[in-house]
Write a protein that binds this DNA or RNA. Structure first.
Length: 219
DNA sequence: TCAAGGATCCGCT
DNA sequence: GCGGATCCTTGAA
């Protein structure tokens, strides 16, 4: 079932928590890919010095000021697309970054996407068979690679059943997430208190982002 | 118009 | 654990 928009339109921290355990779904030419979201980070308001909205409204971040439930996709480091979900009330810039997903459906397509991406960059990479499921979407850049998301998806309504890219609520029988919080990753440039805000949420029971084979990244 | 730097990942040491 | 790849966005001039 599609994720209800009002869940995202309220408090952004609550939204970041609700997204843990929810499903990311992409119906594309390569079939249906889906996964369980296991790591998120919230960026809230123009006063948040770690947020892209810290300089106010610009052409790039305009989508963050819009209604909740839309996708905000941006390029970081010149090579990685990152998927965010716009949250909070319209007019106030807020978004939740999807940092990691546990693959469920379309794992072969994700593996193919990863190999094709590496080839495009002319990089040697692990063979397709050597890629473990838990590593396919274990970082914000990798989520986009695995699901075939790029900036053409910027502005897509993730709460519309008609969208090829959308969010679905956890299904009955899904394991309940064991939610842990910590400071956000890669925001050392931001002043306090923003640098240390515990606005990162992970499912500690997930093999992808929790006490998995690599564990949370530090910086 | 320009220079600086960033919400990252991977391979090698 | 460290450094390289790689290019868009921003603020200042």
């Amino acid at each position: 079932m599609i994720l209800a928009r009002h869940v995202l339109a309220g408090d952004s921290l609550a939204a970041a928590r609700v997204l843990i355990g929810a499903r990311l779904v992409h119906e594309g030419p390569d079939g249906r890919r889906s996964g369980r979201i296991v790591e998120t980070e919230a960026y809230i308001g123009t006063e948040d010095r770690a947020s892209h909205a810290r300089f106010g409204r610009t052409a790039r971040n305009a989508i963050m000021f819009g209604p909740a439930g839309r996708a905000y996709v941006y390029l970081v480091y010149g090579m990685y697309d990152c998927l965010n979900v716009v949250t909070g009330e319209e007019g106030r810039a807020a978004a939740v970054l999807i940092r990691a997903v546990e693959p469920i459906e379309g794992i072969d397509a994700m593996r193919d996407a990863r190999v094709a991406w590496a080839a495009r960059r002319g990089r040697a990479t692990a063979s397709a068979s050597g890629l473990r499921d838990s590593r396919l979407a274990s970082g914000p850049g990798l989520v986009s690679v695995a699901f075939g998301i790029d900036r053409s998806h910027n502005g897509v309504d993730l709460c519309d059943v008609e969208s090829s890219l959308r969010l679905e609520a956890a299904e009955a029988g899904d394991r309940l997430p064991d939610i842990a919080t910590s400071a956000r990753i890669g925001v050392a440039y931001a002043a306090e208190p923003w640098r240390s805000m515990p606005w990162r949420f992970v499912d500690a029971s997930s093999p992808v982002s929790g006490a998995g084979d690599r564990g949370p990244r530090r910086r």
